[in-house]
Amino acid sequence: MQTTLKQLVEELNFECLSGKACLERPAHAAYASDLLSDVMGKAQAGMLWVTSQVHKNIVAVASLKELSAIIVVNERRIDPEVLAHAEGEEVVIIASGLPAFETTGMLYKYLEKVKSEE
């Protein structure tokens, strides 16, 4: 079984802030980092990216690396300009509303569960 961003958002009670039209993308693995060059160097295309960064440059990183979605942790407010830019670049931004540790823990558990059902 493979899961989509849409199922993941519903299952984990996250909130999609941009790129709602792209929620059918698959979700299978994630990379967590607040260092942009670390993500550029080590994340793989199609991965989810967990971060607490909310400035405009996260959109370029996600788009250039063809990441599945950005998952923003905590209750960080994201500038409407950043969301509009993400929308234009077909970058999905999802808010977890939870700290990074809880967010990655939930994601890990969920993605492992999906994998075990394959």
């Binding site: 607040d34 260092l35 942009l36 060059s37 670390d38 550029m40 160097g41 971060t51 960064q53 400035h55 440059n57």
Partner: peptide, 15 residues
């Protein structure tokens, strides 16, 4: 603070 300056830019370019 923006997440740049990790000292990985040039190594990433080389790679």
């Amino acid at each position: 603070q923006m997440g740049f300056g990790a000292g990985m830019g040039l190594p990433n370019i080389k790679k």
